[in-house]
């Protein structure tokens, strides 16, 4: 991994900072306009989850290279309450917050690789990868 940037998320305006940075890094990698919109949307959803559920956390945006493949990894880390039932949280329409319940399952559909780790009372880490095709 290279060129990682961390954005501390504590308020709604940090979401905009994070997604604009994601767009900038994606643009440098030559992602298409549609992919840039996807990247910005993914960051927006993950950053909003941090604010709604954990109040604060970090969004890390990194460039990755695997052989000839280039991609972008977005990692959302918080020390919030954690997700008690990840299976349930990944179902469309399931929501404990004030959202539409489409955040996490929606993000999974938008990216190429998606991982989620969570421990109750310790926090949550979500990893979303998008490859440049």
């Amino acid at each position: 991994m290279e060129g990682g940037s961390t954005i501390v998320i504590t308020s709604a305006s940090d979401i905009i900072v994070a997604r604009e940075l994601g767009r900038k890094i994606g643009k440098e990698l030559n992602f298409s306009l549609t992919d840039l919109t996807i990247i910005a949307t993914v960051i927006s959803e993950l950053a909003r989850n941090i604010i709604v559920f954990a109040k604060q956390g970090n969004i890390v945006i990194e460039t990755i290279r695997q052989g000839k493949k280039v991609g972008i990894v977005i990692t959302a880390i918080d020390k919030g309450p954690g997700i008690p039932d990840i299976f349930l949280a990944m179902q469309d329409g399931y929501s404990t917050g004030k959202g539409l319940g489409l955040g996490l399952p929606g993000v999974r559909r938008l990216v190429d690789e998606f991982e989620i780790f969570s421990e109750t009372a310790k926090g949550t880490k979500v990893l979303a990868k998008k490859w440049l095709l």
């Binding site: 306009l33 919109t37 996807i38 399952p105 929606g106 559909r109 938008l110």
Partner: peptide, 14 residues
Amino acid sequence: IQPEVAFTMVQLGL
């Protein structure tokens, strides 16, 4: 609504 925004919204399920 811009084309790429529409595309992303549908994939998100919005």
